[in-house]
Nucleic acid binder design. Sequence first.
DNA 1: ATTTTATACATAATTTTCTTATGTATATAG
DNA 2: CTATATACATAAGAAAATTATGTATAAAAT
Lengths: 117, 117
Amino acid sequence: MYFYSMKKSSLYKGCLEPILLRLLKDHGRMYGYQMTQMVKDITKGELTITEGALYPLLHKLEEQGIVETETEMNGNRMRKYYSLTKAGKKQTSIAMEEMKAFMQSLEYIVNPKIALG
Amino acid sequence: MYFYSMKKSSLYKGCLEPILLRLLKDHGRMYGYQMTQMVKDITKGELTITEGALYPLLHKLEEQGIVETETEMNGNRMRKYYSLTKAGKKQTSIAMEEMKAFMQSLEYIVNPKIALG
DNA sequence: ATTTTATACATAATTTTCTTATGTATATAG
DNA sequence: CTATATACATAAGAAAATTATGTATAAAAT
């Protein structure tokens, strides 16, 4: 029997990309590990981005020209900083509109108070 | 060149199960097609549940004892009605708590107004 | 009349997007 | 000297969709 809490199913499947875009939009220039920590902090530990999801996605965004990178050394440790390109900023605007609509849709379903029509 | 709007990426990947559970919690007894139409209506066309996602998921929920079914004829057309089992209602409560936390997390990220600490 | 759209189910093949596991390497805390 | 934290990367596998296809009836449009 298992009394400790079950692993939460990842509801945020599909939302990771817009989440990262939003972080970069708000904070300008971030490295990967920093993103994982910031999401954990902001969501009070609710959302945890795994490295296996993060890094491949960042590489994809770079390939697509959504983000660009600069590698810097912090002491002896590497940090790869990501920032939005011009195309990336445009893409982020679209993604944020979609997110807003999506979140509104979830509200309609989970909190069906509002009379329609 | 494509001027007509691109297909929206499905942000709700991972949210479909709690969405269905919520519908069944609110409406008691529904058939599959009805669920797709109701979600489309409630979200003003924003969320579209595909049949390839819906039916296998409903079958999985039935296997797991979350929902139970009754098949009825409407004229000459079959309708398979789904409703929550007792275990399903319990599971739905948990899923709704998780959804609330998830939506709050999205708010924190997309709308970072609130001062923390 | 005949084609399209809507209703109503189902499933297989494929793709997307994660998790889990593993690996490298440095720094700090116990 | 061992565990934890920082910081990257990638491969194997699982989960959860999309897309395509199929069956069948009813209604609407051409």
